[in-house]
Structure formats: structure tokens, C-alpha cells
Design a binder for these strands. Sequence first.
DNA 1: AAATAAATTGAATATACGTTCAATTTATTT
DNA 2: AAATAAATTGAACGTATATTCAATTTATTT
Lengths: 203, 203
Amino acid sequence: MGRKSLKTPRQQEIIKAFYQLAKKEGLENASIAKTAALIDINPSLVMHYFKSRESLIDSLIEFILDKYLLIYRIQDDVNAGPKKNLLKVIDNIFSNKWNALFADSVSYSCYSMAFRNKSIKRKYKDLLDTLRDNLQQLIADCKNRGILSVQDPVQTADIIFVLVDGAYYYLCLVSDKKEYQQKLNQYKKQAISLLNFVSSSAR
Amino acid sequence: MGRKSLKTPRQQEIIKAFYQLAKKEGLENASIAKTAALIDINPSLVMHYFKSRESLIDSLIEFILDKYLLIYRIQDDVNAGPKKNLLKVIDNIFSNKWNALFADSVSYSCYSMAFRNKSIKRKYKDLLDTLRDNLQQLIADCKNRGILSVQDPVQTADIIFVLVDGAYYYLCLVSDKKEYQQKLNQYKKQAISLLNFVSSSAR
DNA sequence: AAATAAATTGAATATACGTTCAATTTATTT
DNA sequence: AAATAAATTGAACGTATATTCAATTTATTT
């Protein structure tokens, strides 16, 4: 009896609007009123689904962090073999596609909150560790089949993501498209060289 | 005639207070009123020296970015030879000292504004390029004297800073002190290995 | 059709914000 | 001591903010 709950889809809609607003005007300028106006609902409705602005931001962070994991899901072919899988993921990481999935600006704003909010800190740390762990598994697969030769897949995965994070930290400031692409390719090469693939005609 | 100008020292005092506030409560919560209260002056005085909050933030960013350059100035001995100089800088970069110089939290908040503010974007880009250029010169010095062997000092300096920025991006999320130190050392080793020092008994 | 429960609205609150402007204080020079 | 110019204050402004609560609308069930 009573009405069917619209909780989940409405919450999603609100988070998405809040995110788009933060992307456009900065997280610090993304307000509940503006968010409500964007999807043509009453500001009170936002408060109904999120107890506070803080919890809305909390949901926004989860929304963003989930998107990061997509690098591992954009694989056309699941059983393409470990080498192809690994290279595909590297491709995804160093592609504009991934970067287009979410706005770095919002993510950096959220990230900066980790310094004062332990829950946010943990969420970011968990994500970064998950990203590393997934890559480590792909590397380990390749290592076990003699496709590449690295000492410790865990360390290699870690270093590669350090490279990735540092790369985008710089690249986000590069306006020139050519410079951007050239640097991105260079960083990608560096990452692949860290993987130390065994050169052979076989795959 | 008239009164002696206190402009510069007052501005510095205000910026510093604003910075400390941003460090403690987050940049988004650092207000002009709070800043004035912190150093016991009238909020109007802040507005007198900075036309707007925006320009105050602009000054804050310059204040922060200047601190980054200190890695190159903490050298006890200027004429210690190129190798020692380079290693000292690497030491500084991968030390807690440097990290203690400024609050990453504030810097990341400011950094995130670069996405919507071209002037801020340029300032950050310029800083990162300056940091790279200084390191490149130290590397080139060493290369010219056969101390190390790298293909292109410019690229090496770039990669090292990519490593540094990526390293701190992860490390800022690490609460455990042991893990922090261990990772930091590992990243430092990686950076040094990129420098490919020529092993010899001579220095 | 009545009952029910969730969705949604609208009005109201208090608060803090950035910014303004005129008035006043303070130090320095003539 | 008078003149000067900068430092500093205090009051006031309108605005947007997050959040509250009661009232109303809407869809679904009995």
C-alpha cells in the first residue's frame, strides 16, 4: 500500500545534477538550490533524500570513484588473453576516453577534502588500492605465463599508477592539444617499459 | 608626507592568516571575516588590501607556489659539486621537510580551481615547468661531467616530477607512518634509478 | 472509494557571506 | 601645531546559503 518508492532513481538524478554543477562552477559553488533548479524540483526534495549537503557530497564522491573503476570494464573481449587484456587496460588508462568519463576538477576538489575527513580519505585510499590491485593481477597473469619479466607485480602496478596520477596532474594544466597528446604518449611508453615485456614472435 | 605605508607586510599577514585558516577548515570555508578575526583586524581592512576574495585567493596561490621553489634553496653548500647538488635536491623532494613547508590540502584546492581559471592554470603550469627546468639543469650538469647517463635530461626531469606528483597523490592518503616512509623511500629509489648514475669510485 | 505512504511543495528561519562607504584614528611631514 | 595621507574602524547592505517543518499532491493498495 502507499506509493512506490522513487528513492534510488531520484537520488541518482540529484547526484548527477550536483556533479554537473560542480563540474561547471566548482564544487564550492554547487549549492542545493542550484541543483534543485537544474532538474526542476524543490530544494526541500534534495534535503529529503540527503540529510545534509555534506552527505550529498559524500554520495558525489562515491559516484565519482565508481567511474574510475571503468578502466577495467571497457574491455571488448574478456578472453583475449592476458597480454591483450593488460595492454587494453594500459590503453584505457592513457586514453582521453577515461579522462572524459569524469571531471578531474571535481575529483581534485573532493580529494582535497580527504585531508580533513577521514571517511573521504579512506574512500580515496581504497579506490587507489583497488585500482592497483586489479592492475597487479593482470601483470601477475602475464608474469606467470612468461609474457613479461618484473620482479614484483605489486610494486610495478603501484609505480605505474604513481606515474598515471602524476601524469594527469601535469596534463590537466596543458592547454595545447599537441603537447598534451605527445606527453601522454610518452608517459604511456614509460609505463609499458616498466612492464618489461619479453620480446618474442609468440604472443 | 602622510603615513608610512604598511601595505606589503599587512598583505602578507593577511595572506598567511587566510592560508592557515584554509589549512584548518578548508579553502571553501576560509572567509574574510574569519581571516580578519584571526589576526584581530576589521574585515574591511582585508577588503582594503584585496579588492575581492578572489584576488585574495590569487595571492594565496602565489604564496603557496613560491614555497614549492624552496626545494632548490635548501642547499647548505652551493659549490658541493653537481652530483651532491642533485642528490641533495632529490633528498629534499622526497623528504618530509618539503612536505611540511606547505599544506597539500590547500594546494590541491587551489589546483582544482585551475580548471575554471586560466590565470591560475598558467601559474601552476609555470611553476611545474620551472621545477622541471631547474632539475633538468642539475641533471645536465651531471651528464656533461659523465656522472650519470641519461638520454634526455629534459625528459628525465619531467618523468621524475611526474613520479613525485603521483607519489604524493597517493602518500597524502596514507595514514600509517611506517607505510608512508617505506613507500616514500621506494619512490625515491625509483627516481634515483631513473638518473642512471655511472658507478665509479670517483665522485 | 477509502486508506495509505511516499513524493513533493512552499513558506519560513537563522546565519554567514562578500562588499560598500563614510567616518575616524594614527603616524609622518612641513 | 597644522597638514597630509594612509591605516583602520563600524555600520549597513543585499544575497545566497543550508536546513526546518507543516501542508499538499500523487500513486498504489485494500
